[in-house]
Design a protein around this nucleic acid. Sequence first.
DNA 1: TCTGGTTGTAACCATAATTGTTACAACCGT
DNA 2: ACGGTTGTAACAATTATGGTTACAACCAGA
Lengths: 143, 143
Amino acid sequence: MSANSRLTIAAHALTWIGLYQRRGHEVATSEQIATSVNTNPVVIRRLLAKLSKAGLADSRRGAGAGWMLARDLATITLLDVYQAIEPGPVFALHRATPDPECVVGHGIGPAMAAVYDDVEAALRRELGKTTLEDVLRDILKAA
Amino acid sequence: MSANSRLTIAAHALTWIGLYQRRGHEVATSEQIATSVNTNPVVIRRLLAKLSKAGLADSRRGAGAGWMLARDLATITLLDVYQAIEPGPVFALHRATPDPECVVGHGIGPAMAAVYDDVEAALRRELGKTTLEDVLRDILKAA
DNA sequence: TCTGGTTGTAACCATAATTGTTACAACCGT
DNA sequence: ACGGTTGTAACAATTATGGTTACAACCAGA
């Protein structure tokens, strides 16, 4: 378990809600989504809470409660989802600061940070190319 | 500590060896490198062992032992280093297989895998653009 | 007003990744 | 033979991840 599966699960949840709503239902419960994802409802609620804060999903409480999309699937990219749930960078610099007396130790941090910035930008650019509508289309096409 | 720092440390180690050799020394010891990186020599030896298997570094044992580059800094890209030390993917699919009876649960895996392939390709393309010679140049320029 | 189902969130656990550390056999130039 | 270094195993400390239980807050409808 080196990488995490949050982006996969979050995309799954939102796509599921979108399709469910498209079939005429008002809201989807975390239990229904968890059944499709095959995990615990709390895992779903935790992720949807972050997506809600980012303005991608909305919840209704009380009886007949559940989740709905705050935006159409076509207007949500995987980059939106990624930024809503992943705070940290992909690559880390040194855990302990390297020797500042050494030329390499002194300069390697900024040098690598510049590269990592470009890499993350490329990653975001790529994630921004795909919407959840694209994902749903892929899913329905394969079915 | 969400992300790991191996690429940073490996690039640091190789660049350090390169500069050290350029200054007229035959080999660099893991202890010297560890001092610049500010970590334990075993951490360096573990990484260099993988880089050695990938054909980027070489070691000499016995007395007067140490590490040297197997290729010039200008011919080693960060992608070479990345592939030598990082086996796993950046994004993971579901930990437990989702409900195959559900349309979304059935199709989301392949759909996301296709996106992740493109993302990893973009990441590799970006890492391939920078050589360790570029990194060293950056370091010396800033000094 | 009460009931029942759901959200929102805290708390805890198991597992695994990451990094640091100690230890030691294997190696080899001198 | 000596002494310094590699190569690697073993273990510990810290953290991330995901699963689970628990429960207060919430609210539509009876």
